[in-house]
């Protein structure tokens, strides 16, 4: 008999094949898919994320765990959809227009996925209108904007203004090397994260507010 603890350990250790085998077995044992998500996968990624925050693991090691979670999610996700269970939060993320930097943005997306968010990644060089279209289509709970250049920060301001004009109910968080809390306040974002490691805590705190 497999147990949820084994799955959690497999994800923490980044063992993809084990994660797949255990997920299959646990689903066959009749364990509810949402339990696997809530009691194994998300706690596993929380452990890994915390280790990363404490500088105990590097990103490559964290991504090995993320891939193990993904392997498990491939099996769990269809069951969740079948049961009508939606992720607690939906997020849209992208690098603003004129900017091609995406390492930080990708890491935030990975960490949000690890926390159980449904993440729609719009990529890089995303125009304000593309953000607006995605918001209209997906109705997210949170929108993340990234910029690495001082000269693309104005695009961040324009994007915040454009997405707010949709009148939809969601939070906006921003980040990137030249961005500060002061700038976030100035442009009317709900939060600012200095690094990818803090992005999950930030998202949860602004969504709870």
């Amino acid at each position: 008999m497999s147990n949820i603890e084994d799955l959690r350990t497999a994800v923490i250790s980044g063992k993809r094949k084990d994660a797949k085998v255990l997920t299959t077995a646990l689903l066959e044992q009749g364990i509810a898919p949402e339990r696997l998500l809530e009691d194994a996968l998300i706690p596993a990624m929380t452990v890994v994320g915390d280790k990363f925050k404490r500088n105990e693991v590097f990103v490559p090691e964290m991504l090995v765990s993320a891939r193990a979670m993904k392997e498990s999610m491939k099996l769990i996700e269809p069951k969740l959809i079948e049961a009508g269970i939606k992720p607690k939060y939906k997020a849209i993320i992208g690098t603003v227009e004129g900017d091609l930097h995406d390492i930080g943005k990708n890491l935030v997306a990975t960490m949000w996925k690890g926390a159980g968010f449904d993440v729609i990644d719009l990529g890089v060089n995303v125009t304000p209108s593309a953000f607006v279209d995605a918001i209209e289509t997906h109705e997210p709970d949170i929108v993340g904007l990234s910029a690495l250049l001082t000269t693309t920060m104005p695009a961040m301001r324009e994007t915040v203004a454009a997405v707010k004009a949709t009148g939809k109910n969601f939070k906006i968080v921003i980040g990137g090397a030249p961005v500060t809390q002061t700038y976030a306040d100035e442009v009317g974002a709900d939060g600012y994260s200095p690094d990818a490691a803090s992005a999950v805590d930030l998202a949860k705190s602004v969504l709870a507010a």
Binding site: T150, T151, M153, P154, A155, P178
Partner: peptide
């Protein structure tokens, strides 16, 4: 050198 926060 580079520009401060300004759209080009």
């Amino acid at each position: 050198f580079t520009l401060p926060n300004i759209k080009i």
